[in-house]
Design a protein around this nucleic acid. Sequence first.
DNA 1: CTAAAAGCTCACATCAATGTCAGGGGCAAG
DNA 2: CTTGCCCCTGACATTGATGTGAGCTTTTAG
Lengths: 124, 124
Amino acid sequence: MRIGELSARTGASRRSLRYYEEQGLLVSSRSSSGQRHYEEEHVQRVRLVQAFLAAGISSGTIAEMAPCMSEPTEDRARQALDIMGRERARLSEAIDGLAAARAALDHLIEDNHAYLARSADDDR
Amino acid sequence: MRIGELSARTGASRRSLRYYEEQGLLVSSRSSSGQRHYEEEHVQRVRLVQAFLAAGISSGTIAEMAPCMSEPTEDRARQALDIMGRERARLSEAIDGLAAARAALDHLIEDNHAYLARSADDDR
DNA sequence: CTAAAAGCTCACATCAATGTCAGGGGCAAG
DNA sequence: CTTGCCCCTGACATTGATGTGAGCTTTTAG
């Protein structure tokens, strides 16, 4: 498939797909005229990249974790594991942070409800 | 306390504190010479703002949710509740997204472990 | 064959929070 | 009074993913 179809199937813009390739997150075979061609598997690949980017993982870090160009080496694998571990911890912290923010928000919501209830009471 | 102390106690830079004020997220009383002065309660206020910003909530949205300048009105409170509800949903979705990314990462970690195990096996 | 639709590259714009620098006051201690 | 530290405003820089547009080529459909 060409870039337009991959874009349609993943929701990533053509621009983004080219950017992913530029960052080493995605490979494509080129037709003789230079057009990018993709296989089914690349759909999943893009979804993975999207999930990581949405999780706030930078493209550079993704490139270190999920190499798709460089052949896997034992050393490379170990280093990737290292980074993955760090990134996993970061993700867990982020989740905790979001949960805390949500709890704070719940508190605000409750306060606001109380205010409205009191306000209605004043009208009594 | 002045801005330097508030900065030290919250970890937010002086620059950020001024920015929060500019965005309507924080108020300060000014001394005759124009210097900002804060009370104890503002420490908590800044922490709340920090938590929301870290959760990816924009300063504009925070300003709509946790007004500190405009007097609370009933209408205003209802509207704030509306926004809070939306934002809460967004947060929950974000948490789910992060959890999914973490799961994907766990999968990659497992793959990598398997690769290393196989690699060690090859050495046998 | 021709026109529309889709691709390519290159380059510049955007957004939001924050960093940083410049030029100028304020205030306490020697 | 001066030295040193903190504060003020205002402006420009940064980062990273993405949008957008220009100018040009390829592919596809009629």
